[in-house]
Nucleic acid binder design. Structure first.
Ligand SMILES: [Zn+2]
Ligand SMILES: [Zn+2]
Ligand SMILES: [Zn+2]
Ligand SMILES: [Zn+2]
Lengths: 173, 173
DNA sequence: TCAGGTTCGGTTACTATATAACGCAGGTGC
DNA sequence: GCACCTGCGTTATATAGTAACCGAACCTGA
């Protein structure tokens, strides 16, 4: 389970980029929101709201469920994090640290997909156009207008397969 | 919101087919499980476990959360219902009533997708190969071995679009 | 006929996830 | 000052899901 942001420097840079991105959309990455974002970004495993709350309490003893849920709602709106529905957990967007100028984020453009490893818990975010287009086509075929898609898959990551964690569950005989 | 099973006759036939299917896999569709399945099948809207519990109490006053969750777990294992993760709710499998002999069900073959209408709440189940294959390809490309996929989308169904419910939300200006 | 197993479900208590509602502090505009 | 807004602390509650224990019903092999 590799960390989402390796060094403290990288993390600071990612947070600053996120702050800039918020400003451009007329929002404010306050200290609380920044703290929660940092907690989400420092791992590549999705974290539940209450796990985040526990961590947050170290820095902010009075924190309560609404504290963290409000911050999460904000970060979701800004596209800085995503919710993994299968896990009721939250994970940083792969592009959260890339302050790539223009106002559109990949989620609005073509959706995203998550691959959740049952071995190590790591979750990989993809932005696969073929998946997004196939889903859009399937929906159009039945006259359905898409607004938001949730594509999540459970399985085993390459690292776990290589180390045999997946072999036990993946290759029965 | 059209009913999942129109008439009582259809419903009975679907339940009997489900019972036969369970028998073939060495399981038993007991009275409780049959009641819960009937409740899930009689609508095309996903129902939460506690909504089901309320309905179930009419027939089974002593019902408690474990009552319904155990039945739901069984029905999920048998592939007779699905869970919609975005809603924490359950819906009948489109094929629940089709006792089509062989032991494989479509979910095991190529996955399934759900289109959830924000206007009327109806949820459409698709079994689109292109979507499933695109996702499998994307996963393989990063060395990820898929085991179970969750593909859900929110938007507006054809009926709601036609009646204008979607126009308000779908076409801003 | 009785001891052992298994499946099923009733019952109680509990954990986990998420939100509602109230209120205050600080800033901004006038 | 006053009205208004955003952000967040605080309390209480709603919704979703499980653990653990128990007994009834039903086999199955002494
Ligand atoms: Zn993303
Ligand atoms: Zn892994
Ligand atoms: Zn199905
Ligand atoms: Zn609709």
């Amino acid at each position: 389970m590799a960390a989402g942001q390796g060094s403290a420097t990288e993390m600071t840079r990612a947070l600053d980029a996120a702050a800039a991105r918020c400003l451009r959309s007329g929002a404010q990455l306050t200290e609380l929101r920044r703290q929660v974002l940092a907690l989400v970004l420092e791992t590549d495993q999705p974290l539940g709201a209450y796990a985040l709350l526990d961590k947050l309490k170290a820095q902010r003893p009075g924190a309560a469920p609404p504290t963290v849920y409000r911050a999460l709602d904000f970060l979701l709106e800004q596209g800085l994090i995503h919710k993994v529905e299968r896990l009721n957990a939250f994970i940083g967007c792969v592009e959260a640290g890339h302050d790539h100028g223009h106002g559109h984020d990949h989620a609005h453009e073509h959706g995203h997909q998550f691959l959740i490893c049952g071995g190590c818990g790591a979750t990989i975010e993809l932005s696969d156009h073929a998946v997004a287009h196939a889903l859009a086509d399937a929906a159009r075929r039945v006259g359905f207008q898409l607004r938001k898609t949730t594509v999540e898959a459970e399985g085993f990551c390459a690292a776990c397969l290589a180390s045999g964690a997946g072999a036990a569950a993946g290759a029965p005989a």
